[in-house]
Design a protein around this nucleic acid. Structure first.
Lengths: 234, 234
DNA sequence: GCAAATTAATGATTTATTCAAG
DNA sequence: CTTGAATAAATCATTAATTTGC
């Protein structure tokens, strides 16, 4: 990611919540390097051959257009005037605030987590959400995120824990982390079943199908041009 | 991070016909007669298979099991017999094939990318998808993924590239990489405006709302327990 | 010349990090 | 400081191009 801003500190306090995971079993995989990719205008995807016919464009692409970017702003002006009001309950959270889980919700989620659930698939998320709705407003994505975060943070906590230190200087953490990470993971972070192959459960999907859940706090107001037609031609 | 074994290899050959589909729109996708046959376990189409049973291909087929692997498709029993068949045409990609972009699609996506689009929001994805559908089957998530991957890989390429130019000892690479990455980015990869604050555009959502896009290649058949009731107590 | 085996590109997922609301 | 939300990096998996052996 951005190779610079390091800001530091950041909280590393582990949540002192009451959760104690009991990682079931699982696995992890390992693997190779990555590759680059060829771009260029319409050269179709041709994997192997590195030899570009006319290259040409390769460079062009890189140069970048400054900020045509401004165009691609999320919904601002052109707010679809019609939203489906019909939807069951008034889903669109009014305030634009983030989900604020209730005790019951957390409790259930933790129960599931302890039960071994780590990354529920779409169907499961749907069901869970339905259940949790009884205790307060919640959406599928909240459930999705919760599991992701909880899993990650439990892991973090474990790692830190095994390091045995409150917090050592950044310098060390990195290195040690790497080492222990492996260890820890191998030992206890096991995912439940899937022994060897990926499981294929949730699709990470852009809201896309959802619609008006969008409410960025800060809105430009740039016309959401789909095809930006950048000024400087090219 | 963790690093230990490296599995790998695998891969099996595949007969490759080089058909470049350019399917227009509309149904299509349904042909696929042969392969299906009875096979209790709906092994869905395997991509490589040449689509039209051209006489030519006969040979290929004859040779028998090219890759047995393809046959070992569990996924049998638990086929939810009922799904919503309703949708206009059978859009739901039949098999577990992945999106295979057409020339035009790639072209447009790259155009947008060069135009500065990096992480389209839900609405934009929706629109883009609609446009691209004219050139071939595609879903919102494909667009979403494309941008993510493209962005990441361009970055990678850049980094590698800049490293290559300086052709310095391996030792340095790390450091320099960081530096250049930043520089480059500053010059051409600029994300539009948001200098400091996050932008809030797309929600990463589990399929959740979508439904039957799910077709894991390998399904246990684990009854999709919502509340797993782990065996090992606690 | 074809088809199996290789190999590289890249689509799809998962994991790690970061940001910021409360 | 806790943690929901979002993004980026790392991985895994599949497929298209290329190479290789007959």
């Amino acid at each position: 990611m951005d190779a610079n801003n390091e800001i530091i500190n950041t909280h590393m306090g582990s949540s002192s919540m009451k959760v104690h995971n009991q990682f079931p079993r699982g696995l992890l995989w390992e693997h190779e390097p990555l590759s680059s990719l060829t771009l260029g205008c319409c050269n179709r995807l041709r994997p192997l051959a590195p030899k570009l016919p006319h290259t040409a464009t390769a460079a062009a692409a890189s140069t970048a257009a400054f900020d045509l970017k401004s165009y691609i702003r999320p919904e601002s002006g052109p707010k679809k005037s019609d939203h489906k009001p019909e939807t069951a309950q008034v889903e669109t959270l009014p305030g634009g605030t983030r989900w604020n889980p209730t005790q019951e919700q957390i409790g259930l989620l933790e129960m599931l987590y302890r039960g071994g659930m780590r990354t529920p698939n779409a169907q499961q998320i749907e069901q869970i959400t339905t259940q949790l709705e009884k205790y307060g407003k919640i959406e599928g994505k909240n459930v999705f995120y919760w599991f992701q975060n909880h899993k990650a943070r439990e892991r973090q906590k474990q790692k830190r824990n095994s390091l045995g230190l409150g917090h050592c200087p950044r310098t060390y953490t990195a290195t040690i982390a790497t080492i222990t990470a492996d260890t820890i993971r191998g030992n206890e972070e096991r995912e439940e079943d899937s022994p060897k192959k990926r499981k294929c459960r949730t699709w990470i999907m852009p809201e896309c199908l959802e619609e008006d859940k969008r409410h960025c706090r800060e809105e430009g107001d740039k016309t959401l041009e789909l095809f930006p037609l950048h000024p400087e031609g090219r």
